[in-house]
């Protein structure tokens, strides 16, 4: 989709909407159970461009590895 980027590239304090999850079934099931489903709003809490990052999704703070975050594709808000 137009403007689609990986979650790992969203800067801190920005919000985005989840579009799709790529990767193995197991990973996708896991991330989806934690609330990262298409349409979900996420806010990046911490992202220093390398290392793990923290996102806020459905009221929960999740620490994600960069690799895991890059499997989540989002549409940045605004």
């Amino acid at each position: 989709m137009e403007g689609e980027v990986s979650l790992a590239s969203i800067p801190a304090d920005a919000t985005a909407k989840v579009l799709h999850l790529y990767g193995g079934r197991e990973l996708v099931t896991r991330l989806a159970a934690l609330g990262l489903t298409p349409g979900a709003e996420v806010r990046m809490v911490q992202n220093f461009g390398r290392g793990p990052l923290i996102v806020l999704v459905r009221g929960t703070r999740l620490a994600l590895g960069r690799r895991e975050a890059s499997r989540v594709h989002v549409l940045p808000a605004g």
Binding site: L31, L34, R61, L62, A63, L64, G65, R67, E68
Partner: peptide
């Protein structure tokens, strides 16, 4: 393995 961890309040 995947790094997915909840940070509690």
């Amino acid at each position: 393995g995947a790094f997915i961890m909840e940070l509690p309040l």
